[in-house]
Amino acid sequence: MSNVFFRAEGVYSGYGRGDIVSDVSVAVESGSIMTIIGPNGAGKSTFIKTLAGVVQRRVGKILINGRDVGGLPPSEVSRHAIAYVPQEHNVFRSLSVLENLEMGAWIEPRKFKPRLESVLELFPALRKLRTVRAGNLSGGQRQMVAFGMALMVEPKLLLLDEPSAGLSPAMAEQMFEAIREVRERGIAILMVEQNAMRALQISNFGTVMSAGQVAMTGPASEILSNREVAELYLGTRA
């Protein structure tokens, strides 16, 4: 793990009294994909929200290029080249597709035009939908808008919460394709995914979370071939 640029160290977080995430550490290499898998309620989604600043970390560090962004509100985290795509309510429903993408580029308005071009290259389907309200789009189209919005800042790290949730298999496949292409553009991705098998196949690294803690971490191929993981999370084939 030579070129690790993003690192979460000993992160605790949660809502209300208890901790949902306790002592979780992950490291992401630049230009790589890391997938977090685990059963429902393992704290994966809370963890990724904590990295984005949506849920406040209680203890621990969240370092990007050596700077601790833990404790910053989401609007400030996004100014450190970290872009987060929530699982739900991830577009502005009453704004047009174009306006959504414009809001994506909020912190760097000057770069709106060229970035818009590159996002439309990644998702050509959005080209025709520019003036449509995001609330009137299909689930797959909406996911593209959400993803595209996050790419408008050309982040170093993209945080994806269940990018394939609720999509048709064909649409989900298209999303995974897009995720791979984004990595080719040099953007690292940290995602949480239910479709663990497919996600790990395109990933460089994997982490298994269980009961709020890291159960295992390593190269994606190792996670995929681990018998225990296979039985528990991947459906029986190893």
Binding site: P73, S78, P86, H89
Partner: peptide
């Protein structure tokens, strides 16, 4: 429309 998403996109 969606204040949390707006914050996530960097709008103060």
């Amino acid at each position: 429309d969606n204040s949390q998403l707006a914050e996530v996109r960097g709008i103060r």
